[in-house]
Design a protein around this nucleic acid. Structure first.
Length: 389
RNA sequence: GGGUAGAUUCCGGAGCGGUCAAACGGGGCAGACUGUAAAUCUGCUGGCUAUGCCUUCGAAGGUUCGAAUCCUUCUCUGCCCA
């Protein structure tokens, strides 16, 4: 029984320190306190976060207690992990605002009843300076400088600010405060999480088990998924977007997405396009529902299979008056339908390059005027099409 | 505290008085190709009421017919020494 649980929990992890310790803790029979710290630097959760949240959910399903730490205090410092430059600080208001939607979305995956949500500002904002100094005395400069991120920056003559060095210490102290048994994080969190072990030992506690999970690559297949790089799939993306974004990943990336997003193995025999469509559909089904997944798939197929545009479910836009200037109309559609600001120069470029198409015909004259009829389909760029009403 | 180097468009990084909206690379966007993609190739990549005009080269002043380029002060950063 414990063996099964152990195997399950260790599945799809990158690094565990250590499996034996985890086994011992599991054998104790009490619900373990499993920590995940998140800094809500952006308001939305994406599939990269989901990898970790799904692991937490496994713990919950086995009866354990999740402690979700909202780093409202640490977010203002910014985690230097993987950063080649100091993060721009966020205001506390921004962080709290983000935290609201962030936790809401986290419960799309987590079981709310088995989750304790705490804010680390609760203890850090009240910590007297004396205590800060004491805390700093518990670690050495050399320990902190072991970190590759800092090393690299020092070697390449970039600045490292002292507050950034506080970050791992604070994250470690979180573990002491909430008395965590296990801490989960991405591979880039290994250092920070290990600091937690040290600090817990220093306080005479049984140190937490460290469990790191693979970082999901973003849509570009290169860098880790993150909002700021724009290579993410949001948990709350509408089905069509979610599907479309997943279809844009490379074939090489697919098995990894199957494992980390769905927790299953890809059928290597399947035609890659079909495999990708199933990956996309299953993901949509997971965060929306089966009907939405089916609809998104049909839509995608219609949009991209030539001649089936009439079938596709596209955003509708009212016909402009006859003889409307093309540029002005396109600009307005970007703004109103897709909430994107595009300069006229930008749109002119799209036209000249043949991106703007009416019923499949390229409109390449930037000075053209248009007379549109209901039912016409206008393509703006790869991802955006509209239907006239 | 002393010395020294530097701050350029999304990023890296040229430019060192006019030919600079600013080389080149990356990224991004578009087209072709394809199995949606990826890869590859090609084009574009400050704004505008557009063969011209406007705003940009850390900030503010100044010199000059003319400044990203020269001068002054300021702000910030790296490196070396203490």
């Amino acid at each position: 029984m414990t063996e099964d649980a152990l195997t399950l929990l260790c599945q799809d992890t990158e690094h565990i320190h250590s499996r034996e310790e985890l086994a011992t803790k599991l054998k104790s029979g009490r619900p373990l306190r499993v920590k995940l710290g998140v800094d809500p630097t952006a308001p939305d959760i994406h599939l990269g976060h989901a990898v970790q949240l799904r692991k937490l959910r496994q713990f919950q399903d086995l009866g354990h207690q999740v402690v979700l730490i909202i780093g409202d205090f640490t977010a203002m410092i910014g985690d230097p992990s993987g950063r080649s430059a100091t993060r721009p600080p966020l205001t506390h208001e921004e962080v709290l605002e983000n935290a609201k939607t962030f936790t809401e979305q986290a419960f799309l995956i987590l079981d709310k009843d088995k989750t304790e949500t705490v804010y680390n500002g609760d203890w850090f904002s009240k910590m007297p300076f004396q205590e800060v100094i004491k805390l700093n005395a518990k670690v050495t400069m050399q320990q902190m400088l072991q970190r590759e991120d800092f090393r690299k920056r020092i070697d390449s003559h970039q600045e490292v600010r002292l507050h950034e060095i506080q970050y791992p210490i604070m994250q470690g102290w979180d573990s002491v405060v909430i008395r965590s048994d296990v801490e989960i994080g991405g591979t880039d969190q290994l250092f920070n999480v290990l600091v937690g072990r040290d600090l817990q030992k220093g306080e005479g506690m049984d140190p937490q088990v460290v469990m790191t999970l693979p970082l999901l690559e973003g849509l570009d297949g290169n860098k880790k998924m993150s909002k700021s790089l724009g290579n993410y799939v949001g948990l709350t993306d509408v089905p069509d977007d979610m599907f479309g974004k997943l279809m844009s990943i490379s074939d090489e990336l697919m098995p990894r997405y199957y494992r980390l997003v769905l927790g299953e193995d890809m059928d290597a025999e399947m035609h890659p396009m079909e495999a990708k469509k199933q990956l996309a559909a299953k993901t949509v089904a997971l965060y929306h529902n089966n009907d939405a997944a089916q609809a998104a798939r049909t839509n995608f197929e219609n949009k991209f299979a030539k001649g089936s545009l009439e079938e596709a479910d596209l955003p509708e836009v009212d016909c402009p008056p006859a003889e409307s200037p093309l540029i002005a109309f396109v600009s307005q559609v970007y703004q109103q339908t897709f909430d994107q600001k595009r300069s006229n120069g930008d749109i002119r470029r799209l036209i000249q390059q043949g991106s703007i198409q009416l019923n499949g015909e390229k409109l390449s004259d930037p000075k053209a005027t248009l007379t549109l009829r209901a039912g016409d389909v206008l393509k703006l760029d790869k991802k955006r099409l509209i239907r006239l009403r």
